[in-house]
Simulated assay, not measured.
Amino acid sequence: MEAVMACWEIEQSLQSLTGVSPGEGTGATMSDDDDDQVDSDANLFDGSLDGADGMGFGPLIPTESERSLMERVRQELKHELKNGYKEKIVDIREEILRKRRAGKLPGDTTSVLKAWWQSHSKWPYPTEEDKARLVQETGLQLKQINNWFINQRKRNWHSNPSSSTALKSKRKR
């Protein structure tokens, strides 16, 4: 959601800088490589009316000073956009990395949970009292404890042949 909002803010800034709303432009995008820029200034004024503009005048070709001004404005806009949104891009990247790391529980808390798991390997379903004690010992939320046990059972318990037979016998009761 934050990425969508950042893009919207970029569009708003572009609109305020250029006076063109999204969708009105040519569809061209700005590139970091100057080599990718085709002679766009010349292509904009290519005389598509066979050398006339319908009024008896020739094609609108910018003068050298106008081309220089257009290029300077383009470079300034590019620089301003890069600097203005660099922080937002860094923030979004950090948030993505933080969310990626967020799934890892601290090692000391997992050691407490694994110790409980080892001592109850035959039937690793903690009671509500066990869960409350684990919440106190680890500082995790009850939901985190529940999810850890769900994931642990999926990953490790069913692969153990002795515990899978225990599971089958418990289900039959």
Results as ranks from 00 to 15, higher is better:
residue 110 T to E: 05
residue 1 M to C: 07
residue 163 S to T: 15
residue 168 K to Q: 10
residue 145 I to Y: 01
residue 24 E to L: 13
residue 63 T to Y: 04
residue 83 N to M: 15
residue 106 P to W: 04
residue 33 D to P: 05
residue 3 A to S: 10
residue 150 I to D: 09
residue 120 H to G: 00
residue 94 E to I: 08
residue 134 L to E: 00
residue 23 G to F: 03
residue 112 V to R: 00
residue 92 I to W: 05
residue 157 W to F: 14
residue 94 E to D: 09
residue 71 E to N: 11
residue 149 F to Y: 09
residue 117 W to G: 00
residue 99 K to D: 07
residue 29 T to I: 08
residue 103 G to K: 13
residue 150 I to S: 11
residue 107 G to W: 04
residue 59 P to N: 06
residue 166 A to Y: 06
residue 172 K to F: 08
residue 96 I to P: 00
residue 90 V to C: 04
residue 75 Q to Y: 06
residue 124 P to G: 02
residue 171 R to Q: 12
residue 117 W to R: 00
residue 109 T to E: 05
residue 56 G to A: 11
residue 162 S to K: 10
residue 40 S to I: 12
residue 50 D to P: 03
residue 90 V to G: 01
residue 119 S to K: 02
residue 94 E to W: 05
residue 159 S to N: 11
residue 91 D to N: 13
residue 62 P to H: 04
residue 55 M to E: 14
residue 111 S to C: 02
residue 98 R to S: 10
residue 139 G to M: 05
residue 2 E to I: 05
residue 33 D to A: 12
residue 136 Q to L: 09
residue 133 R to C: 01
residue 65 S to V: 15
residue 151 N to D: 14
residue 5 M to C: 08
residue 107 G to H: 07
residue 64 E to M: 09
residue 97 L to Y: 07
residue 17 L to K: 06
residue 55 M to H: 11
residue 19 G to V: 03
residue 74 R to A: 15
residue 112 V to G: 00
residue 147 N to T: 13
residue 49 L to F: 12
residue 28 A to Q: 09
residue 165 T to N: 06
residue 62 P to F: 12
residue 27 G to Q: 05
residue 61 I to P: 02
residue 101 R to M: 12
residue 128 E to F: 00
residue 126 P to W: 01
residue 152 Q to V: 01
residue 29 T to R: 12
residue 133 R to P: 00
residue 69 L to G: 06
residue 163 S to I: 03
residue 3 A to E: 14
residue 140 L to N: 05
residue 98 R to N: 08
residue 172 K to L: 13
residue 97 L to S: 05
residue 58 G to W: 05
residue 153 R to N: 03
residue 27 G to E: 09
residue 147 N to A: 12
residue 82 K to W: 10
residue 172 K to I: 10
residue 71 E to R: 12
residue 26 T to H: 05
residue 47 G to N: 06
residue 96 I to E: 05
residue 125 Y to Q: 02
residue 70 M to S: 11
residue 46 D to A: 15
residue 142 L to E: 15
residue 60 L to R: 10
residue 139 G to P: 09
residue 52 A to Y: 08
residue 54 G to Q: 12
residue 50 D to L: 15
residue 43 N to G: 07
residue 93 R to W: 03
residue 36 D to F: 07
residue 163 S to E: 08
residue 1 M to A: 13
residue 83 N to G: 08
residue 157 W to Y: 15
residue 149 F to T: 01
residue 76 E to S: 14
residue 84 G to T: 06
residue 6 A to W: 03
residue 55 M to D: 13
residue 162 S to V: 15
residue 7 C to D: 07
residue 127 T to M: 02
residue 60 L to Y: 08
residue 53 D to S: 10
residue 153 R to G: 02
residue 65 S to L: 14
residue 1 M to N: 08
residue 88 K to P: 02
residue 97 L to C: 06
residue 109 T to P: 01
residue 15 Q to D: 03
residue 54 G to C: 10
residue 13 S to L: 07
residue 38 V to A: 10
residue 160 N to Y: 06
residue 83 N to F: 12
residue 139 G to R: 04
residue 157 W to A: 01
residue 18 T to W: 03
residue 9 E to R: 15
residue 77 L to G: 06
residue 13 S to V: 11
residue 98 R to K: 15
residue 40 S to F: 14
residue 60 L to M: 11
residue 70 M to H: 06
residue 44 L to H: 04
residue 95 E to V: 02
residue 31 S to Q: 11
residue 45 F to M: 10
residue 77 L to R: 07
residue 6 A to Y: 03
residue 134 L to P: 01
residue 35 D to K: 08
residue 9 E to S: 09
residue 23 G to N: 04
residue 153 R to L: 02
residue 164 S to W: 09
residue 124 P to T: 01
